[in-house]
Design a binder for these strands. Structure first.
Lengths: 342, 342
DNA sequence: TGTTAGCACTCACTCAACTCGAGTGCTAAC
DNA sequence: GTTAGCACTCGAGTTGAGTGAGTGCTAACA
């Protein structure tokens, strides 16, 4: 059977209506509400065809029709047009994002908050894993008798630090020398490379005098390097689901929350997604718990290379057009912002 | 009317039962389940008295009785005994808390997670506001042309930093000198004091040569000092409420989540509470949205002086005895942990 | 005088029967 | 090919009887 122009018009009307109302819609109501120029009976015939083709389903015999995941996929792929956002909306987003951009993480968190606020869905963002970040400084500072601060700074300006205990002798001067030596040795090396090198060996030669301290410091140094690669998952608007009819059922709400609470798992799912705007609809998701959700993600860039993800999760019944445009706009803005500042 | 020994026994039985089952209990069931040695009729009379005295309420005429907030208050104040935790439970808590205590914040977050896990309620923790923290280092490091890192370290080893843009001339050497000067000037001063001083004035005299840079740096310096006083609110086990019969109603669940989502407000409520173990029951809470919750908080110490809060929030029907002992034990452990390491 | 048995009464809950209405599919006429 | 008509379906909402766990009151008992 072929998807005629008329079938498409009907399908579009059903999707529009369902996205708005969350209620199955019947032929009569459809013909009254939308100016399709054909009678309910004809619509019924077409609906039956569309159902046969897999674009519609039926919760039960005497209920109206509901678009299937396949229908949404068709809609997303070939029916919707990426309408640009309104100027006002754009302006709001731009100003909100640029309010205070000193901290990368905070800006990303804010972007997620913004997404959830505008879409009334749940939004998330993952900070980039800065694999190719190059080390710039290693700094050791005494705090009190018994503990010192170890700090690592990368070329991109990211900083990680730990307070660590020292059970050997040290002085501010010694620590300063050691800092300089470590910095001299590792500056310009990529963090992820450093993690694979037998670092103690590689350095032992030129600093035998310090080797007692080194043994103390190196484990923490490695740990801190690892932290450098940590990503952060921000999640905003979790409680929005209470306002979505799909989750008016406690069990489903619980399920949704439960899924989003498994942070590691979720991070993996999101990170495994392709670059650019990615839309997965309901059953297209690998994860069983997401089979009735849709996920829209996009990739933002920092300095044109490091990548993080940001996106939105909600019921399959979602304003794909609006949400997609929005996610895209926010991502572009983020990428632009991070190009200028870092 | 007087609270006789028998009335107390009956009240205790009602509380025990209700805490366990969340269902109102009637005289007959009570006499069958608990060995009180009196008939349902007598219990009924006593219940009527207890209700008159305000310790019990009635959801409707033909339902059983339910303890009132006043009853819980009585129970907490004079009926419950602080039973120490089991050795095994203690052991679990100790090991879990001591697993990795390099970072104060992480340990505190873990403590909250532990509380929520054991109580099956929602737990939270606030990191201490380190008012009297004394500044130890100011450090300025160049990152690339156009931006530098500003870092402040306190005596307690806490570190805050920002990447900032510099639109004036600078070199690594100059920054090093400036760092040393700032450190020399402010070392040992309390962070909160520094925030009130007109810092630019106070320093201008001795570093006129650097004044161009200073103007650039000072606003960020102040901002970073302020960040030093930020506290963090951790919240764990939010989804536990789905398993509590009291919140089997979507509206109430939404209300609960909504309340806990207002982080600033919640932080204030918690911080305003007294020191030591504090229990507020239902209507005793000032906040309207908490009128049907109970809150148990305790204060932990870092180095014996800085204070943070940790606690649990749940329905008024709560195992006060168990939860209180637990919160107390966890707090004591935290305080002990932080005394040794920092 | 405190305790208990008995009894009438209350009221949320459950469940089946019923109605209502928005929907369908099919058929026959246009 | 389109439409009107009609019988049919089925979930949602309503009603009403029955059930049972509860109450308060009264009168008898130890």
């Amino acid at each position: 059977m072929e998807l005629t122009e008329r079938k498409l018009r009907i399908l579009q009307a059903i999707i529009d209506d369902f996205v708005f109302s969350a209620e199955p819609i019947g032929s009569r109501t459809l013909s009254k509400k939308y100016d399709l120029g054909i009678s309910p009976a004809t619509i019924r015939n077409e609906m039956a065809d569309l159902e046969e083709m897999g674009y519609l389903t039926h919760p039960h015999t005497s209920a109206g029709r509901v678009p299937s995941d396949k229908a949404y996929r068709l809609y997303v792929d070939s029916m919707m047009e990426r309408r640009p956002l309104g100027d006002e909306e754009k302006e709001v987003i731009r100003t909100r994002l640029e309010e205070d951009m000193t901290e990368l993480d905070k800006t990303i968190e804010k972007a997620a908050a913004l997404l959830s606020e505008i879409t009334h869905l749940t939004a998330f963002a993952i900070t980039p894993r800065e694999e190719t970040n190059k080390l710039k400084y290693v700094n050791l500072l005494p705090v009190d008798e018994g503990s010192i601060v170890l700090m690592i700074v990368t070329e991109s300006g990211k900083i990680k630090n730990t307070v660590m205990r020292m059970n050997c002798d040290y002085s501010e001067k010694k620590l300063e020398i050691l800092s300089k030596m470590l910095t001299y040795n590792y500056r310009g090396k990529e963090v992820s490379d450093l993690l694979t090198v037998d670092i103690i060996k590689s350095i032992e030669g030129n600093m035998e005098a310090m080797s007692g301290m080194m043994e103390n410091i190196m484990p923490e140094f490695m740990k801190t390097l690892e932290k450098m690669l940590d990503t952060e998952l921000y999640m905003e608007g979790l409680t929005n689901i209470f306002n979505i009819p799909e989750y008016n059922d406690l069990d489903r709400a619980r399920g949704f929350m439960g899924m989003l609470n498994k942070k590691e798992q979720l991070t993996k799912v999101i990170n495994d997604r392709g670059d650019g705007i990615m839309i997965t609809i309901g059953s297209e998701n690998d994860d069983d718990e997401m089979k009735d959700c849709s996920l829209i993600t996009a990739t933002y860039r920092v300095n044109g290379k490091l990548v993080g993800k940001i996106g939105v999760i909600g019921p399959t019944r979602m304003e794909y057009e609006k949400v997609t445009s929005l996610v895209e706009f926010v991502t572009d803005n983020l990428s632009r912002t991070f190009k200028l500042t870092d």
